[in-house]
Computed example of a mutant assay.
Amino acid sequence: MQAFRDVLDECGFMDLGFMGSKFTWHKHYENFTVWERLDRAVANNEWFSLFPDTQVHHLDVTTSDHKPLLINLDGMDCKQQRPFRFEQMWMSEPGCGATIEAVWQQGGDGHRGERVIKKVDKCGKSLTKWSKTCFRNVRRELEQKRKKLAQAERVVCSGGSVLLMKKLEKEINVLLDKEAQMWGQQAKVQWLKDGDRNTRFFHSKASQRRRKNYIKGLYDNEGQWCTNPNRMEEIVLEFY
């Protein structure tokens, strides 16, 4: 068994998780039954990158003591509007602070608590808008800069100036730091150290957390299983 664990570690395989019953194997004895989760689906970082929304289902069966596994490569519907999240990489841009100050200095109606809540909500909307218009997409900008760098390298190799190449290298390094901050925050790896750019690792961790937090459906007060997003919101509100 230890040799099998060593192979998993050496290949970088990680558990894909599951939906359904907690156990995949059982054995009946005269006075008790043994339950275990023996069957698992695993994958490496490269596979996670290709299929980040994968779900593994434990299916019911009566002809075997092992449950079959159904691997759905596109099992998560994440089209719902995502809640606002402050991105750590925004703090490296001067426009972030200016956007927050502009919102916070505005007046408002209601008592102090209501004004604070309204300003926080408006601040999130303003930051989201600022990020889309001023911050731009980090990965898209990285791709564009790398293409320009490849062209600049050819110019230098032909005897041209090296100034543009040096400028692009610095800009790419800044974008790589921002990308590492983004994935590090989404993965919630608290022991992330400054300068670590292992974005493939953080991408896989963020994908695992996304699958873990994903809610496929909820039972309503009558015990009915509901998967409609609007109805799920109503069930949550009714519960609280």
Score class of each variant (00 low, 15 high):
1 M>C: 07
7 V>C: 12
7 V>N: 02
14 M>P: 00
18 F>Q: 03
20 G>F: 15
26 H>Y: 13
31 N>V: 10
38 L>F: 03
40 R>I: 11
41 A>Y: 06
43 A>Y: 04
45 N>M: 12
47 W>R: 08
47 W>T: 14
58 H>V: 06
58 H>W: 01
60 D>Y: 05
60 D>V: 06
61 V>G: 02
65 D>P: 02
73 L>I: 12
75 G>Y: 10
78 C>F: 02
87 E>A: 12
88 Q>N: 14
89 M>Y: 10
91 M>D: 05
92 S>M: 14
96 C>E: 03
100 I>H: 03
104 W>S: 07
109 D>L: 08
110 G>T: 11
113 G>S: 07
114 E>N: 05
116 V>H: 06
118 K>P: 00
125 K>G: 02
130 W>I: 00
132 K>R: 15
140 R>S: 13
146 R>T: 10
151 Q>P: 00
154 R>K: 15
163 L>Q: 12
166 K>H: 08
169 E>R: 09
171 E>T: 05
177 D>E: 13
178 K>A: 05
179 E>N: 01
179 E>A: 05
190 Q>R: 04
194 D>Y: 00
197 R>Y: 06
198 N>R: 13
200 R>Y: 00
207 S>F: 01
211 R>I: 12
216 K>R: 15
217 G>S: 03
217 G>H: 04
217 G>K: 01
225 W>R: 08
233 E>W: 06
234 E>P: 01
237 L>Y: 11
239 F>C: 15
